[in-house]
């Protein structure tokens, strides 16, 4: 009798602690989300740790979609702050799966998009991709400002950085500044430096960059 009582006690205490079996997926997604913020905020060490954790959790499953998405996300973030990235990590595992959505996204990143890929892109990129495909940069530029997701806006802007209008760049800097995305702010400040119309403006931008880059 007493053993049954003890067992019931343990079972009752433990019944509220059940967790989903695919914890690795949740942990991986959360870690990547944290990576996105830390990377853009220029918290290098934390970002590195977040990415490693995201990859580590994703590698707990034979389904490599999560891992491929992380690799692609890492590549996209690099591109969005002006770092050259050819998404080699993704390419290494691309042939192990046939994910049209990821392939389309990859095509967008390396600017090799085909018309048939557009339907597989996330909703917020579709119109921008169409304009890009038509080489209508002015339309693409306008469309960037209508994208609500900040990271997507940063990515699109960096994909057409040489054709971007000055006001759009200013808007991008404001968005990045508001969110504390130091890496993106610095990248776009350096980009606006190319468009500076006067030495005074150039001096101001340089001063801002120098302040942001200095330690304490």
């Amino acid at each position: 009798m007493k053993y049954i009582l003890l067992l019931s006690l343990i079972l009752l205490s433990g019944c509220s602690l059940k967790t989903a079996p695919n914890q690795w997926q949740y942990k991986s997604a959360n870690a990547f989300s944290s990576y996105t913020k830390n990377f853009l905020s220029d918290n290098q060490i934390l970002a590195e740790n977040d990415l490693n954790r995201a990859i580590e959790h994703a590698k707990k499953s034979a389904d490599l979609t999560q891992l491929a998405t992380i690799y692609l996300g890492e590549c996209a973030l690099n591109i969005s702050v002006g770092i050259d990235d050819t998404c080699d990590k993704y390419k290494n595992i691309q042939e192990l799966m046939h994910n049209k959505e990821l392939d389309a996204y990859h095509s967008l990143l390396n600017k090799s998009l085909a018309k048939s890929d557009i339907q597989h892109l996330p909703q917020q990129y579709q119109e921008f991709a169409l304009a890009l495909l038509d080489k209508n940069f002015s339309k693409a530029d306008k469309h960037i400002l209508s994208i609500t997701k900040e990271t997507s806006r940063l990515l699109c802007a960096s994909l057409i950085k040489n054709s971007l209008e000055k006001n759009t760049k200013k808007s991008i800097i404001e968005t990045a500044s508001y969110n504390g995305y130091k890496k993106a702010v610095l990248f776009w400040l350096k980009e606006t430096l190319k468009d500076a119309s006067s030495p005074h403006e150039m001096e101001n931008i340089e001063k801002k960059i120098s302040i942001l880059e200095s330690e304490l």
Partner: peptide
């Protein structure tokens, strides 16, 4: 902290 119940990685 993130208060998210998403199991899929969200791309930028």
């Amino acid at each position: 902290m993130q208060n998210e119940n998403n199991s899929k990685v969200e791309l930028p």
